[in-house]
Amino acid sequence: MTDVLRIENLGHSYGKFKVIEDISLSISKGEMSALIGPNGAGKTTFYNAISGHFPPTRGKVFLNGENITGFAAHRVVDKGMCRSFQITNIFAALTVLENVISPLIIQQRKHFKIYGNVFKDKQIIERAMLVLEQIGIADRADQVVANLAYGDKRLVEMAIVLARDPSVVLLDEPTAGMNPEETENMIKLIKKLANNSGTTFFITEHDMKVVFSLAEKIYVLHQGHLLAQGSPGEIRSNEHVKEAYLGRKVHA
């Protein structure tokens, strides 16, 4: 069993409003996967339900074979799954370096250590700088994040997410709000990271160009249900998908 992430019959309702229903999928190690669907399809809800933002109403979540259904967010992270958010979620008044150090402190169980200077902790600083170099923002390590450009803030969140070297990374619309150049750089970065680390990436997107240039496996979410899954080629030629969602966009 090499599935890093397996979802069984997952469903979520906000009150009586069923947003996603009966979603099952399994992702094997290293397989770059993407969940696509128009705005409002339920992608973020799906991420929230599997990452500990709230427990899913129905269904199960397995991470590396372990049932983590309904775990609180910090426990999901401890088990090896970390995520980004559609709306940039970082520590605005801290420096770039401090943003990356924070997850590392927690990973090394030093977050209750009330003495000592973390900036002299070689192990943590070296790891933090390595991550920043991988992401390409090491030169801005000492800058306060609030003063960075939007694209750089998104990169800081990537660094935060990757710092603990998770086995699964969920990226919720990593290119949201980016200009074409930033989008292209982000795609390149995700590709590079996916090839160079043991981390399995699972992204959501509504931008088709991004998805088809990145993903090996695509899941199509339509009105809360999984409409189709397969390779980019299979998805492109899938009749249901064309009809429900891609049709207009592919030929437009």
Partner: peptide, 25 residues
């Protein structure tokens, strides 16, 4: 100025982010 102190500031900035990097807020 300890590691704990930095995590406190991180919580002040964004407690949701702290739990989503593994901290029990």
């Amino acid at each position: 100025h300890s590691p704990f102190g930095l995590i406190l500031k991180a919580m002040r900035e964004n407690k949701q982010r702290v739990s989503f990097v593994g901290g029990n807020v």
